[in-house]
Nucleic acid binder design. Structure first.
Lengths: 201, 201
DNA sequence: CCGACCCCATGAGAAATGTCACGGGGAGTT
DNA sequence: AACTCCCCGTGACATTTCTCATGGGGTCGG
């Protein structure tokens, strides 16, 4: 019997996944939470074998949760389950100690299979996603460049970004310019979009 | 027995929802498709009482599907099931003939309840979302302003938008300017974001 | 028919954005 | 110690964006 913890902020999806997984005789859902910062406590209380983690959650995100779990509860392995097959997500997931990575549009058998393999100690990733991750490479952005791009996400002006980050306006423009050339965009907006697509923000 | 059709592009989610709904004794999932343009045919073949439609799908989107169904198969009522509680989505859903609107983070009983009520002939919407929809009002954007905003989504320059839409560059700027003032943004990028949030694109 | 509103366009000025060259300071490597 | 790379800044320039005024043509309802 494999004990499972489910973490996803969308209640309906969480319940639906629980129902789906309950169809497998060797699975048992022992915990179900809607916030990233509730996972650790729930895991300690229920001792699951595998934690299924969405990335986008209130509190802390699934990737960070995977890091915490691998530190504090190494006997509970993490599987990231997310909508987005962003290369950077996979990379960060693996670096933070996750053992599996499944995207939400894969067939259901694949999820069950991934869970069993991870429970057995294997590592599981979508081979296609793994390939594009290797092809894309890791983020070329420096910490500051990333900060500035994140701040620019809402359509913020250079002056506002400068104020928010306690920088001079010229510096902000320089960082943006550097980020744009690294990402291969001719626009601030385009740079944000692309970096986001790669999972670099 | 209520016959259901499921349409969602994410296979895992679709299967999970099917599993969840199968737990209710009075529900029967008779069809399940992953593309908007497959819904009509499947509905004609299986004669469901209620069609559960995601908005974001390849082919045509769920809102358009609802329109088609209400025209061609009025005995099959549509329920929109989506992640985003965008005011504009709800409005368009209702205008296109959908009978229910449920967001993916509502509790599972609410979905079952909504399905039963819609099957019984009622209309069902999240009251909170309905309120913000009324507050937000319908889109103030003209068709062209919308087009330009959509084209600007990828971080496209004014010149490129002009080329794509066979307009002069100045005209594009004028439309963008109008859109920005209507939406309450001081940026092109911000305008795109806000209009998108409202579901106006 | 007239007003209202949308479509499309031009042009011009103010503001923001993107590029480039340059500099100094700090941390880590070789 | 020299080198590299990141951090932060300045200043100047070309380009783009945003605003505003203005105009013609179209459709639709009063």
């Amino acid at each position: 019997m494999i004990r499972l913890l489910l973490a996803d902020d969308q209640e309906l999806i969480r319940s639906a996944l629980a129902a789906l997984l309950a169809l497998e005789e060797d699975f048992e859902v022992v915990a179900s939470v809607g916030r990233g910062d509730e996972v650790a406590a729930a895991a300690k209380a229920t001792q699951p074998d595998v934690a299924l983690l969405d990335i986008e959650m209130p509190g802390i995100d699934g990737l960070a949760v995977a890091g915490v779990l691998s530190q504090e509860l190494p006997e509970c392995r993490s599987v990231i389950l997310t909508t987005f097959g962003r290369p950077g997500y996979l990379r960060r997931a693996m670096e933070s100690g996750a053992r599996g990575f499944v995207v939400k549009d894969s067939p259901p058998e694949q999820l069950a299979d991934a869970i069993r393999r991870v429970a057995a100690g294997e590592r599981v990733v979508d081979p296609l996603l793994a390939a594009t991750t290797l092809a894309t490479g890791s983020s070329p952005l420096t910490a500051r460049e990333r900060d500035v791009l994140v701040a620019a996400r809402a359509g913020t002006s250079a002056a506002e970004i400068a104020e928010k980050l306690f920088l001079s306006e010229g510096t902000v423009r320089n960082y943006l310019s550097a980020a744009m050339s690294k990402v291969g965009a001719r626009n601030r907006a385009e740079a944000v979009i692309r970096a986001d697509e790669y999972g670099w923000l």
